[in-house]
């Protein structure tokens, strides 16, 4: 389903490009994407933190039937990554042999093209994991 996501994607650049999360100053809990409130405190104070990009695979799958903008990539690996900071992030695992992925494998994040609507559209960039 082709949509023009220009503004939506632009708005998320700090997260997509640099993995800017935020941290509840009181509890130290890190949120990605950043949150405005916590379940415990509507007036929580936060500070921005940049995720280091290091993590490990908490769970994973291989998408063999892909949704509309990703069909050319399939089969592609997708994982929930437990980052060094403790917050989990969903990301594709790029450049991997999909037959050899295992839970617990260490990964780092790289800057990749996520998708484009068509050859005339804006290109959407963001993070993907690669196995270290």
């Amino acid at each position: 389903m082709a949509q023009t996501l220009t503004a939506r994607v632009w708005r998320e650049q700090p997260q997509r490009y640099r993995m800017i999360a935020n941290k509840d100053k009181k509890s130290g809990k890190v949120y990605f994407p950043p949150r405005l409130v916590t379940p415990d405190d509507l007036n929580a104070e936060f500070e921005d933190v940049q995720l280091s990009g290091a993590g490990k695979i908490a769970s994973w799958t291989v998408i063999r039937v892909a949704p509309a903008p990703f069909t050319d990539l399939s089969p592609y690996a997708l994982a929930i990554i437990e980052t060094e900071e403790g917050v989990n992030v969903t990301a594709q695992i790029a450049d991997c042999d999909v037959e050899n992925i295992k839970t617990g494998m260490p990964v780092k994040f790289e800057f990749r093209k996520i998708y484009e609507d068509n050859e005339a559209s804006i290109i959407y960039y963001g993070y993907k994991a690669v196995i270290v």
Binding site: D72, L73, A94, D95, E110, F111, R112, K113, I114, I123, Y125, K128
Partner: peptide
């Protein structure tokens, strides 16, 4: 390049 790599992504990684 992989389908998800282009001059911008390669440049970002080299620059980092």
């Amino acid at each position: 390049p992989a389908p998800d790599q282009d001059v911008i992504t390669l440049s970002v990684e080299a620059s980092r």
